[in-house]
Computed example of a mutant assay.
Amino acid sequence: MRIRLVKQQTGGHLVTAILDDGVEMHVAETDHDHVVPHEISHLALEGTLGFAYGFWGCVSRGALFNGMRVLSGRGEQEALAVSQTVRKEAGARFINAEIMVAAIEENYPGARVGDVEECRELAMKNYTALSDLLAAADLPEATRRWAELVGAWADVPRGGAMERDWVSAAEPIDKDAPVSNQ
């Protein structure tokens, strides 16, 4: 899947995706500045950490979430049916990916903490239901990838775009740990 992030003149962003089967989707749009669009965090962290059914993994299979729509390549009824199937298949794994991304975003090394292991400890403390996943996660690689994408986004001028391919980890892990209420 090819993901395109456009930095709008307002500083907001527009995100579209072209799935491997040619379906084009409107994923997200904001009209206000984001230092780091949340979709970039998902792109960096889910792929590196192996969340096959995180946000981008679900989108790549045809899932639609709030504010999303199919632009071309699939009719509305078919798109809704595919989305329902993918979302049911994903189950709690999608929520766990969202929580993992939030845990790392909130404690990102260099922003609030000094290093990756401090990030891991704080995230484990604040998201206890995901402690086992966080303990095993390759956070150094995930945060390196995140910093790389954050830097690339910072270099995009207003009106410019950044494109990336969605590539999940070679051996995606089904993240079925209990979900935290946080």
Rank of each mutant, 00 (worst) to 15 (best):
113 V>M: 02
84 Q>M: 15
85 T>L: 13
82 V>E: 02
119 C>H: 00
72 S>Y: 09
138 D>H: 06
136 A>L: 11
107 N>P: 07
67 G>C: 08
127 Y>G: 03
85 T>E: 15
78 E>Q: 15
116 V>A: 05
123 A>F: 09
136 A>V: 05
97 A>C: 05
113 V>F: 08
66 N>C: 11
132 D>R: 13
56 W>S: 02
67 G>N: 11
66 N>K: 14
121 E>Q: 15
111 A>K: 10
75 G>Q: 02
86 V>D: 10
144 R>D: 12
120 R>N: 05
133 L>E: 04
94 F>K: 03
118 E>G: 13
78 E>A: 11
106 E>A: 12
59 V>L: 01
67 G>P: 00
85 T>Y: 04
100 M>D: 00
123 A>S: 11
95 I>R: 09
136 A>W: 07
119 C>A: 09
143 T>R: 08
93 R>V: 01
51 F>K: 06
59 V>H: 04
107 N>S: 09
55 F>D: 03
140 P>A: 09
118 E>I: 13
133 L>N: 06
98 E>G: 02
127 Y>R: 07
80 L>M: 13
62 G>H: 07
101 V>P: 08
87 R>M: 10
73 G>Q: 06
102 A>F: 00
109 P>M: 03
65 F>Q: 10
68 M>C: 09
99 I>M: 12
110 G>F: 06
69 R>Q: 14
49 L>W: 07
144 R>Q: 15
67 G>S: 06
94 F>C: 01
70 V>N: 05
121 E>T: 02
121 E>Y: 07
95 I>K: 09
77 Q>I: 14
122 L>N: 14
83 S>A: 04
95 I>D: 05
98 E>I: 01
71 L>P: 00
99 I>N: 01
53 Y>N: 13
130 L>W: 10
72 S>Q: 14
106 E>M: 10
53 Y>P: 00
76 E>N: 09
81 A>L: 09
124 M>N: 09
132 D>H: 14
73 G>C: 09
54 G>Q: 03
129 A>W: 00
102 A>V: 03
79 A>F: 13
79 A>D: 12
63 A>E: 05
